[in-house]
């Protein structure tokens, strides 16, 4: 088992982990983190599988290099959007508008429930 294969398998698992995080987590910052993990998994698969019989293939490496830079730009944009969203609505998660998933509403519900 070469190191390329090991890290490609790790990249598969990371991709699945990140995908689950993107789909299941509610808070925006956590989704951004999960998205980054997903991207790192994809990069690992690309470079790991391109490393056949010891000699690395430069083309996937150049693609991954570009991809890392693009991922940082996308992360910065997503963080700015999350901050703006929180400034406008006071929420740190997205769901349907008016949904009960909002953090403030669930807090209110708890407070209403508490005195009884």
């Amino acid at each position: 088992m070469s190191s390329g294969l090991i890290f490609a398998a790790t990249g598969c698992l990371l991709f699945v982990l990140g995908l689950g995080g993107v789909l299941l987590l509610k808070a925006l910052l956590r989704r951004i983190l999960a998205f980054n993990l997903m991207g790192s998994g994809a990069f690992l698969v690309l470079v790991g599988l391109a490393q056949r019989d010891g000699t690395p293939d430069p083309v996937p490496q150049a693609m991954v290099l570009t991809g890392i830079v693009v991922a940082v730009a996308a992360t910065a944009l997503a963080l700015t959007l999350a901050r703006r969203w929180q400034a406008l609505t006071g929420r740190e998660d997205i769901g349907r508008v008016g949904d009960a998933g909002s953090r403030r509403r669930s807090k209110q519900r708890e407070r209403r429930k508490a005195p009884r």
Partner: peptide
């Protein structure tokens, strides 16, 4: 460290 192990010093 993983990129270093994968012989990709530029990445």
């Amino acid at each position: 460290l993983a990129w270093a192990r994968l012989d990709a010093p530029d990445i």
